[in-house]
Simulated scan of single mutants.
Amino acid sequence: MDYSLNSEKVAHATEQCLMERGVTKDEIAELVMFLQRDYIPGLTKEKALHTVDQVLAKREVQNALLTGIQLDILAEQGKLMQPLQDMLQNDEPLYGCDEIMALSIVNVYGSIGFTNYGFIDKRKEGVLKRLNDKSSGQIHTFLDDLVGAIAAAASSKIAHGHQAELEEMKPGGALLQNIALTGENEAVKM
């Protein structure tokens, strides 16, 4: 039997896993709002949520989420080999694979995402605070970093879009935008 990936099933499984682990897209959008509130006046929750959806639609993001969540679940069930079991169960500070997987998400949207991710990872705002609470009995060694990375990536995407909008408003901005998009010097053609 030939293997054939069904993209809709992967996307649905990703959203289902997030819900089952108690994370809503609305909570991720709140993190986006937190990250961008000082930089983009008038940013709406709807725009943040729409951008979170766009980030979650990326296959790289879905792959990272499914993998990380599965590892967290296996750690909860005690099904990992030692010493990996203890490292994930205790969210070992020097175990960096969770951050590396999160950076694969952030990397999709450029370098500003790295700074957003570092900031939100240290602050542990909103849903990240809950995911880092070890008293719940759940293990979120990967999920907390992945959720932070989704918020950072969405924030980066919004920031890049905002910059493009600002440039379009400047005199000659549409011409500069066209040159950037086509890679041609439209001014020479005129």
Rank of each mutant, 00 (worst) to 15 (best):
H162W: 15
E46L: 09
P83L: 04
Q138V: 00
C17L: 13
S156N: 02
H160E: 13
A187D: 11
L71I: 14
S4Y: 08
N90M: 03
Q85N: 09
F142T: 01
K189L: 13
V61C: 13
A187Q: 12
Q177G: 09
E15P: 00
P41E: 11
E60Q: 12
L5D: 09
Q70A: 15
M19G: 05
V10A: 11
E165M: 10
S4V: 15
A102I: 02
L66V: 08
K47T: 13
C17N: 12
G110T: 06
K189D: 13
L18G: 06
S156Q: 02
R123Q: 15
L65F: 15
G161E: 13
Q177M: 12
M190P: 00
L128I: 05
R37N: 08
H12P: 00
T182Q: 09
A75N: 02
S156C: 07
C17M: 14
L143K: 00
L65R: 06
K9Y: 12
K129F: 06
P83R: 05
A164N: 09
H50T: 14
E27D: 12
P41C: 05
V108R: 05
G183S: 10
C17V: 12
P93S: 03
Q70H: 13
A29R: 07
T182N: 10
E20V: 01
N132F: 00
Y117A: 04
R37G: 01
E60F: 04
L131T: 02
T24S: 15
I112G: 03
G78E: 06
V188R: 13
I158P: 00
I28K: 04
S155G: 15
Q36L: 14
S7H: 13
K9M: 14
D86R: 05
V108C: 07
A180T: 10
V61L: 08
A174W: 11
Q138D: 04
D145N: 13
S135M: 00
C97F: 10
M190W: 11
V127T: 06
D86M: 08
G137T: 03
E165S: 10
A75D: 02
L71N: 05
K47F: 06
I150F: 06
F114P: 00
I120N: 01
I150T: 07
N132E: 02
G172S: 06
Q54H: 11
A152S: 11
S155T: 04
M87H: 08
G161D: 14
A11M: 10
L88G: 00
V32K: 03
D91W: 01
A102C: 05
P83K: 04
N178H: 14
Q89R: 12
L56K: 07
D72Q: 05
S111Q: 09
L175F: 05
E15A: 14
E76P: 01
N63I: 12
T141V: 05
M190N: 14
Y109T: 09
D121T: 08
L56T: 09
Q85M: 09
Q54W: 05
V23A: 03
P93K: 05
A151T: 03
A151N: 03
D91N: 11
M19H: 14
